[in-house]
Amino acid sequence: MYDMKAIVWMLPVLFMIHDFEEIVMAEVWSRRFKKELKENTSIMKKNPFGLNGTNYWSTSAMSIAVEIEFVILSLVSLLSCIFSSYFIWYGFLFAFTLHFILAHFYLCIEFKHYVPGVITSILFLPVCIYIMYISQLFLKYNFAKIFFSCTLGIILMIAVLVILHDAIGKFSRLLIGYSLENSNMRKSNS
Rank of each mutant, 00 (worst) to 15 (best):
Q136G: 01
S63T: 11
K187N: 14
L175C: 02
M185V: 14
I131S: 08
V24I: 15
I129P: 01
S58Q: 04
M4H: 00
R32V: 00
I17F: 08
G50A: 13
F124H: 08
D166G: 12
L37Q: 11
L123Y: 08
A6R: 15
N142G: 15
K112T: 02
H113A: 02
V28E: 15
I64D: 02
F124G: 02
G169P: 13
S121W: 00
S149V: 03
Y90K: 02
N52Q: 15
F143T: 09
Q136E: 11
E36A: 12
C150D: 06
S135W: 01
Y2E: 12
I64Y: 05
S172E: 15
F92D: 02
P12I: 00
K170W: 15
V71Y: 01
S135C: 05
L164Q: 10
I155G: 10
K140V: 07
V127T: 13
M1G: 14
K38Y: 13
N52L: 13
V66Y: 06
L175M: 08
I72F: 09
R32L: 12
F92Q: 00
I109Y: 11
I119P: 08
H104I: 04
G177C: 08
S30K: 12
W89M: 01
L175V: 00
F124M: 09
L102D: 02
F70D: 03
M10Q: 09
D19N: 12
R186Y: 13
P48R: 02
F96R: 03
S84L: 14
I176Q: 08
V66W: 06
A103D: 11
S149T: 03
S60F: 08
S149F: 10
W89P: 01
H18G: 10
T59E: 04
M62C: 05
R173Y: 11
F94Y: 05
K35D: 15
S179Y: 04
W89R: 04
L93I: 04
M1A: 11
V160N: 10
V76W: 07
I168H: 09
Y86H: 09
I146Q: 04
V160T: 12
K187G: 06
C108I: 01
V8M: 07
M16Q: 07
H165N: 15
I68A: 03
L51D: 05
N184F: 15
K145E: 15
T41G: 09
F143W: 12
C128S: 12
E181I: 13
I146T: 05
M44Q: 11
I155W: 03
G50W: 04
Y141S: 04
S172H: 14
S190W: 00
N142Y: 10
F20E: 03
L102P: 00
G153P: 02
S149C: 07
I23W: 12
K170A: 15
Y2G: 09
E21K: 06
H104V: 00
S42Y: 09
E21S: 08
H113P: 02
K170H: 15
H99S: 05
S135F: 06
F147C: 09
G153N: 01
